[in-house]
């Protein structure tokens, strides 16, 4: 029972997280990762207590993805320097694959993200993707929200090529794809429409010269730019994390996409949608498809959650109760 007693009070924890207390962020992330039933309840309450302003209106949630070896971690390190230079605090969630056999994982990315200097305004949590092959584990999104409540920029770094791996676009404001020079894979995926088009494309390692230039021009020719002036025009950039070139421009493009979302009034609504999807996913895990049907079906639930003013997490508690009173009896009789 020791472990349960050790669970932190969600209300106080939310307060400390919003006060940008690093230890609180660490404890909140542990709580969100915790699968025990008590911890799950506490976690939902923690999320519901986080300030709505931070969750819907401020900050910037960025997804950075690309094939292994494209230099994502080095690029992250370079971006962190630029952001810190602009006075912004940064939270990073680095997702690494784990072994399907042992379940273990080696999380080595921190190494490349450390500048050597200790900086309290940079916080890194590495995460194994735990067998949800290609996709992101369910904890990633709420974890990124907790970070959003405490840091100006939250970056989720994932390994991936192709559609499945660009899952990160389903939970971040801006998705940035890092392409490996001289590897045609990403271009093929884009051309074939297998991969959803990211918001910003960057070819890393421009210092290697010709191959990088060639990849960049191929990427550019693949992108269909919109005819409507209001639509987002996907920029294709080149940079070198090693040389530190093109990083300011990349940071500017990421920021430009956020401003565009805000101008279009899309920032709050897309975050609300991520949240609604997570609540449904959670209910699905807990009560199964039957539970979702019993609560009115996915479409109805989605609408309901999107319409809710303020936190959909409050709704989660209500829906749970509703299920237990309305449907649980039915389950029991079915079971009989």
């Amino acid at each position: 029972m020791i472990a349960v007693r050790a669970l932190p009070n969600p209300g106080t924890l939310a307060e400390s997280v919003s006060a940008r207390d690093r230890s609180a962020v660490a404890r909140a992330l542990n709580l969100l990762d915790d699968k025990r039933p008590d911890a799950r309840r506490y976690a939902a309450r923690l999320l519901a207590t986080l300030p709505a302003d931070r969750l819907y209106r401020t900050g910037h949630l960025i997804g950075l993805t690309g094939p292994p070896g494209a230099g994502k971690s080095s690029l992250t390190a370079a971006l962190v320097q630029v952001w810190r230079g602009r006075g912004l605090s940064v939270g990073i969630l680095a997702v690494d694959p784990s072994s399907p056999i042992s379940g273990g994982a080696l999380l080595g990315d921190r190494l490349r993200m450390l500048s050597g200097e200790l900086d309290d305004k940079v916080f890194i949590r590495s995460l194994a993707c735990r067998g949800e092959f290609g996709g992101l584990s369910a904890e990633v999104w709420p974890m990124s929200l907790v970070m959003l409540a405490a840091f100006d920029i939250v970056l989720v770094e994932t390994v991936g090529v192709g559609q499945k791996e660009i899952d990160v676009s389903k939970l971040t404001d801006t998705t940035c794809f890092v392409a490996q020079p001289a590897s045609g894979d990403s271009i093929q995926f884009l051309k074939a429409g297998i991969m959803e088009v990211p918001h910003v494309l960057v070819v890393n390692k421009e210092d290697i010269g010709l191959a990088a230039k060639k990849t960049l021009s191929e990427l550019r020719s693949t992108l269909k730019q919109p005819s409507d002036d209001d639509d987002w025009r996907v920029p294709a950039l080149s940079a070198s994390a090693a040389q530190g070139t093109g990083i300011e421009a990349l940071a500017n493009s990421l920021e430009a996409h956020r401003s565009w979302l805000e101008r279009q009034g899309l920032l709050g609504s897309s975050r609300q949608r991520f949240q609604a999807e997570w609540v449904i996913k959670r209910l699905l895990e807990e009560f199964g498809r039957f539970g979702i049907e019993c609560l009115g079906g996915k479409t109805v639930l989605m609408e309901k959650l999107m319409d809710t003013q303020g936190s959909a997490f409050d709704q989660y508690d209500l829906l749970q109760e509703q299920f237990l009173s309305d449907c649980a009896g039915e389950t029991a009789s079915l079971a009989r």
Binding site: S102, G104, A128
Partner: peptide, 15 residues
């Protein structure tokens, strides 16, 4: 670090 991963730990290797 390698052995710990092999027996199922998630290992943050700090170098």
């Amino acid at each position: 670090a390698v052995k710990a991963r092999d027996v199922g730990f998630e290992v943050v290797y700090e170098g």
